[in-house]
Design a binder for these strands. Sequence first.
DNA 1: TAGCGGTACCAAGTGGTACGAGGTACCAGG
DNA 2: CCTGGTACCTCGTACCACTTGGTACCGCTA
Lengths: 108, 108
Amino acid sequence: MDDLTEMLKGTLEGCVLEIIGGEETYGYAITRRLNELGFADVVEGTVYTILLRLERNGLVQVTKRPSEVGPPRKFYALNDAGREQLATFWAKWQYVSSRIDRLKEGGR
Amino acid sequence: MDDLTEMLKGTLEGCVLEIIGGEETYGYAITRRLNELGFADVVEGTVYTILLRLERNGLVQVTKRPSEVGPPRKFYALNDAGREQLATFWAKWQYVSSRIDRLKEGGR
DNA sequence: TAGCGGTACCAAGTGGTACGAGGTACCAGG
DNA sequence: CCTGGTACCTCGTACCACTTGGTACCGCTA
């Protein structure tokens, strides 16, 4: 599937939030996870900008831990604000996707 | 529902394409239609920029017709390239929305 | 021990898209 | 004549995913 980037705007951040909500994890692993999930073209640079934004907006708690196979990892976990933001994201997604699906099924 | 603008990026153009595909129509009416459909905050300026883009990209055929209740209207209809683009849009939407729904339903 | 591939992070700049604000103009009714 | 509805457009802004390029840690192997 080619070039989904425009369609991912506004949703990719929510996806990252959901992944972090599932378990405490770090940027490199999140990228791999997204690729697994079918977002094949999402690259590290993109994920890191999202993570920095989440941190800047106070939605995550960050913990640095050493790794045995490479440089130290920055683990991200949702805080209360993050969980709230995630709920809002899913509400918006539900709203938007249902309207679009309705439009697809012939309008009214 | 508040501020869906980021989530609409990349999908709004497809929605406009779908509306035009349903029947030949014009900018002002498309805006009203989107508002009806639940995209309440979409304003005329947004729709016009999309319509200009569609025209520039050669996806629509444009016909100007006088109106009895105001200034002349610019009617838009899909051409072959437009119909193809619309099909591509729905394929992408299907792809993206299914992956996101899967992520929502606990991952794998 | 030098180099390579995998792991892991970050920064600066680009391009596309929706939106805000404002302007023009046609028309009917009070 | 003036207001409100209809109908079009333009310019600037903000935001987001992406591109490109860089740093650095680690284990393996030639």
